[in-house]
């Protein structure tokens, strides 16, 4: 899962990049032993993830708060993806990122899909949804009001559903 709030929930700002990358992996081997952590493995894994996901950081020892928003997002995705998840829930993964970072985050999600993971993308950026999604479901007032394959969706239908068009129709039928 990739939480919507990078700093609020996704990372511990004063802990190092390596420690943030190990935020979930610390429990089990190879990093987590019975009581102690294998710091060398943690750093080695962190360096590998930093290289693989192109996280721009001077070293894995700097505190996570020194990273830019895009790199922080890459860090979070790297951490989640490294666990070979079958399902990725990405909430607003590109919000507030610059164009370059946005692109690499999107590429990453697509790569994971191609590798066989189910990706649930939650976003309000229609352009992004049309670019990435295979199926689109629209929510309005807490309910899924429409679902369709991406090829069949067009901006107008989705836009109307988002505005609660179906809700309006229901009300009329009720009267």
């Amino acid at each position: 899962m990739c939480p919507e709030d990078r700093t609020g929930m996704g990372t511990a700002p004063n802990l190092s990049v390596a420690e943030n990358l190990a935020l979930k992996a610390y429990r089990r081997p190879p990093i987590g032993g019975r009581f102690f952590m294998n710091l060398m493995t943690m750093y080695a894994q962190a360096r590998e993830l930093v290289a693989r996901f192109e996280i721009a950081t001077p070293s894995v020892h700097v505190p996570a708060r020194k990273l830019s928003g895009g790199n922080l997002q890459k860090l979070i995705l790297a951490r989640e993806v490294a666990r070979d998840p079958r399902l990725i829930v990405a909430a607003y993964p590109t919000r507030g990122l610059d164009v370059g970072a946005m692109e690499s985050v999107r590429q990453l999600l697509i790569r994971e899909r191609d590798a066989g993971a189910a990706v649930l993308l939650i976003s309000e950026d229609l352009e992004e949804i049309f670019m990435l999604a295979d199926r689109i479901a629209v929510m309005y007032e807490g309910q899924v009001v429409g679902e369709m394959p991406a090829e069949e969706a067009d901006l107008e239908t989705v836009g109307l559903l988002m505005a609660g068009e179906q809700g309006v129709a229901k009300k009329e039928a009720g009267q």
Binding site: G8, M9, G10, P13, E19, L23, F35, F36, M37, L39
Partner: peptide, 22 residues
């Protein structure tokens, strides 16, 4: 060095991240 110490440091820095990490 310990797993417990790691947890304490994460919780101290950002309890929401700690909760999220289980």
């Amino acid at each position: 060095r310990s797993k417990w110490g790691f947890e304490v440091r994460v919780i101290g820095d950002n309890p929401n991240a700690a909760r999220y990490a289980g």
